[in-house]
Design a protein around this nucleic acid. Sequence first.
DNA 1: ACGGCCTGACTTTTT
DNA 2: GTCAGGCCGT
Length: 744
Amino acid sequence: MKFLNDLNSVQQEAVKAANGPVMIIAGAGSGKTRVLTYRIAYLMACGVPAHQILALTFTNKAAREMKNRIVKLVGDDAGNLWMGTFHSMFARILRKECLHLKFTPAFTIYDADDSLSTIKKVMEKLNLPTQQFNPAAVRARISFAKNQYLSPGKYAETAHELIDEKVALVYAEYQKTLERSNAMDFDDLLVKPIELFEKKKDILEKYQHRFKFILVDEFQDTNRAQYHMVRLLAQSLKNIAVVGDDAQSIYSFRGADIRNILDFQKDYPGCQLFRLEQNYRSTKSIISVADELIRFNKEQLKKKLWTDNPAGEPVTVVQCADDREEGNQIVRAIQQESHRRKLDLKDFAVLYRTNAQSRALEEAFRKNAIPYEIIGGTRFYERKEIKDVLAYLRLLANPTDEVSLLRVVNYPARGIGDVTLEHLRRFAAEHSISMFDALKRLNEVIELTDRAKNSLVQFKTIIEKYQALRPQMTFSEWARSLVDELGILSIYKEERTAESMGRWENVQELLSAISEFSSDKPDGTLESFLEEVALVSDIDTWEGEHNAVTLMTLHASKGLEFPVVMIAGLEEGLLPFYSGTSESSDVEEERRLFYVGITRAEQKLYITHTSLRYRFGDVTYPGESRFLHELGSEHIERVGMKPQRQREAASLLDFEKPAAEEKRSAQRKRAEESAYQQDAMPDYESESQEQFEVKRGVKVQHEIFGRGLVMVVSGKGDAQKAVVQFENYGTKNLIVKYARLRPA
DNA sequence: ACGGCCTGACTTTTT
DNA sequence: GTCAGGCCGT
Ligand SMILES: Nc1ncnc2c1ncn2[C@@H]1O[C@H](COP(=O)(O)OP(=O)(O)OP(=O)(O)O)[C@@H](O)[C@H]1O
């Protein structure tokens, strides 16, 4: 086992501690993923068969890369490892075992979109006004509950507020609807296996016995349901190894719970703890900047991190005039650095907080003819035209899937409208059958007009035809023939707009993807294709093979590394992000997100921020992110516009400027300052009574909501909006003109 | 039943 | 700046 020489001594110990519970907590770039990889290789080299090892990763891509690495270390048997995301591994188990749960193996996996439309229907049925209860918020709460393994019953017990009582009702009815549709949403892929394991001990034992060794990567971002599931599976043998870094926990919005790390030692007595302290990825400068930053978090486990790597160059902080210039500066820096360091474009990554920021950056890359690739945003399989075709495929696999049926029953247009569908739905409900089965008994649905009946028969005929054709053709021929017969391609072709041509191409691309799938996996079924499609993320399909700069969110960058990294948009409101709708903005998590971004860089890091940014189509004047003041100064160099203090001095000297303009910028400056130091400093608004202006950082009084602090201002004139955080009423989004704010 | 047009809400982050 | 959903006219 000479491959162990690729590891340092602590890493080796962690690899060789094969039996019993093990937790590895370590900072960025210290080789956590490498240890996990080698641990699996080690187990296999010791004679453990691959199929007895369950390794859970955060993305499919991470699983793929790890598997390839292990194949290189110990050979092809690694192909039999159970390695993938929680969702894909447990989907696989559910396909086998779902008959115990009132589902058939052809069950459909609903994405967030499908589940939202199901929730809307449920709310309609329960007479819950969507104006009062936002369906997206209801969906989020249900999803959150599931990720904590809270059943509808338990959820109802803990509900105190009105909205939670309503959510509990929707939740219960939603689950019934899914069951009727033979469908599971993303979260069910975690919840249902737990239900199964708790209900059927013999099945649990089967899997406890099968998975003799369990490993979890990125443990800091697992949720309670996942924790629970792992615990069930590891209960008897306790061969469980988890690796993580609490400082990189960035998915709490998805239910990730840091308790998983804190409870682990308690729940697994005799757990061996390993700490890795040497960073192999980054320069000393980058490590020390990251360390300065993360120290500002109060809640964290203490960790050391050092490196033998060279000191490297300081981190460059670039101030830009606006978001377009930010893009140009980034492009220019990439051109210079690639030349100077002899790097390829694929060695660069640009990271940002929100997908919306990619637009302005993209423009700069296009203008300068620099190849780039954007990861994330709307996934290919979420595009409307793709979802339409997929809905046919899903309906053919699982005719009880109501969301898919409703999506395509009148697409392409067949003259089937709401009224017709309402009749059909009522009939189906009365007879406790699916809508698709109701199609077979149209003559009993008396309310239907002949025209409607004809259209419905037409629809039923094509579905039945392709159900019958399925065993006679290859999957890809069959899919192409279906799409041809539906005439979807010709509709887009005839429309002849830029948009429709794009859609035409996308549908073609889907068909190629199907061909590729069936040539890669000759025994791949329709169901397995649909499952793969439901569970891939954008980052999974990214190979990093073409030579282009990668643009992605900070979240998507987790676990990756690049020689040069640029992080854009270091502004209050953007990073840390705050929005008017989410009450709990967690600055510490935002800081961790920035920390993740910084620690992706190997040689050189750039950080940019702007003084003017377009958001929601409006101009905003963001202030510098507080995080920029938390990086120390030793390893930082600032370039770009002059620092604020000097700029203000300059503008005061500049008496050509209209007086009003001058005052505005001075006031803006002060507002920004007070926003940073609001805790440290009492406010010193004095003469602002007469010329009161709603600005960031200003304290205001509202007739109903009382005292509050202005967080963000956007737009101007009558359209000016402000996000105000009130002392007793939470955060509100107000239109300044109507809000009648007074200074407080 | 359907298409066109307008309005408003919204975008954190994703398996 | 986009997109979905509602409204209206045909
Ligand atoms: N013992 C070692 N010798 C040489 N290089 C190493 C060693 N351990 C890890 N590395 C390298 O350090 C880099 C970071 O390793 P890895 O991705 O496993 O760290 P990590 O702890 O998972 O990082 P993060 O948490 O930041 O994603 C990789 O390029 C890896 O190849």
